[in-house]
């Protein structure tokens, strides 16, 4: 609230501080990992795998972090949408096996696209129901919110068992996406390439919406100060429900990718990713999409390099990463300005 003297304040052009330091972190980690891994091909493979994994985690985490930013709602049931998205896709892909097994990239991608669309629409609608039934009654009550969304997760996981059965299901990749392009002795797995492409597309799309559209401006303003957005005459609740649905749909999309990546599917598939997702949004700064993107890459890199160097401590290394980041910046890499 304090201000510089009027004359200088209105004359001086303020400095726009570009905070690039966190962006150097993945580069630093990759550089440190290289001599430890010791082999260029392996290092490249690990790095690409990390990017693919990071993009999938980002797709899942982006909606969650925005939902939190906008309404202070942390949805512990987010993992349910990951699993349900994957199961919906599986349900679509099974009757389309003719297309997925065909030796045609176009047919393969078409089948996959259909599956993804069904998964995203299905989880988006479920997100709407989840918001109404589970989240809405406990706005502003953090403790109940955590408990109730966790309860929603339990119920959703059990319903998956009821509907699709409890066994582990295979999730086969379409023919054209199996295998890898080889460049010399370096193999570039096709599916990883697809995952990176999808992740980048989602990131770019979100950035355009958030920076170039009125809706995006409203979301960003709402993350900062939802009360003022209301005082300007906008209904934040409607905005929030929309973001919640979009976030759920993205989790569904991410779930499809994740299940294809692991090539198997269980009802608890969401739970395993969610731990990483939480680490990512804490590292990135709750509510920040850019931070979430960077955090996802960081977490995936750490996970992949460490999994190669010392497989037993992969997840623990991510905890250490989180601790280190929080000691450096207690609100995450890119903290969101909050009122």
């Amino acid at each position: 609230m304090t201000s510089a003297p009027a004359t200088t304040a209105s004359d001086a052009i303020p400095k726009v501080r570009l905070d690039l330091l966190p962006i150097l972190l993945p580069v630093a980690i990759a550089a440190v990992a290289y001599p430890l891994v010791g082999n260029l091909t392996t290092w490249l493979t690990l790095t690409i795998a990390a990017l693919a994994m990071g993009m999938m985690i980002f797709v899942i985490a982006s909606g969650l972090t925005l939902v939190f930013g906008l309404m202070d709602v942390l949805n512990f049931g987010h993992g349910a949408f990951i699993a349900i998205g994957a199961y919906l896709a599986m349900t679509v892909l099974i009757p389309l096996s003719g297309w997925t097994q065909a030796d045609s990239l176009a047919l393969n991608l078409l089948a996959l696209l259909l599956a993804v669309v069904v998964a995203a629409i299905g989880t988006g609608l479920l997100g709407w129901a989840f918001e109404r039934v589970i989240v809405k009654p406990v706005y502003g009550q953090h403790l109940k919110q955590i408990l109730v969304t966790m309860g929603g997760l339990i119920v959703a996981e059990q319903l998956i068992h009821v509907i699709w059965g409890g066994d582990q299901k295979p999730m086969t990749l379409p023919t054209a996406l199996r295998g890898a392009f080889t460049i010399g002795d370096f193999a570039l797995e096709k599916f990883r390439l697809l995952a990176v492409a999808v992740g980048l597309a989602v990131f770019a799309g979100m950035m355009i919406v958030l920076n170039r559209t009125r809706l995006g401006l409203l979301i960003r303003a709402g993350v900062e100060n939802s009360e003022m957005v209301e005082a300007l005459g906008y209904r934040i609740r409607r905005l929030f429900v929309g973001v919640f649905m979009a976030g759920s749909a993205l989790a569904g999309l991410g779930g499809v990718l994740w299940a294809l990546y692991r090539e198997t599917l269980t009802a608890s598939i969401g739970g395993d990713v969610m731990v990483l997702v939480f680490i990512v949004i804490i590292v990135g700064g709750l509510g920040s999409v850019g931070g979430c993107f960077l955090g996802a890459i960081l977490v995936a890199m750490t996970a992949n390099y460490v999994a190669f160097l010392a497989p037993k401590v992969a997840l623990a290394s991510n905890i250490l990463l989180m601790v280190a980041v929080l000691m450096w910046r207690p609100q995450g890499l890119y903290p969101v300005a909050k009122r």
């Binding site: 942390l74 953090h142 939480f278 997840l315 623990a316 991510n318 905890i319 989180m322």
Partner: peptide, 18 residues
């Protein structure tokens, strides 16, 4: 306070895996 729920979840998972 909300960090606590997330961080305990992450730490507990890591511990169980370890």
């Amino acid at each position: 306070a909300i960090f606590f729920a997330m961080i305990t979840l992450a730490v507990a998972s890591a511990f169980a895996i370890l």
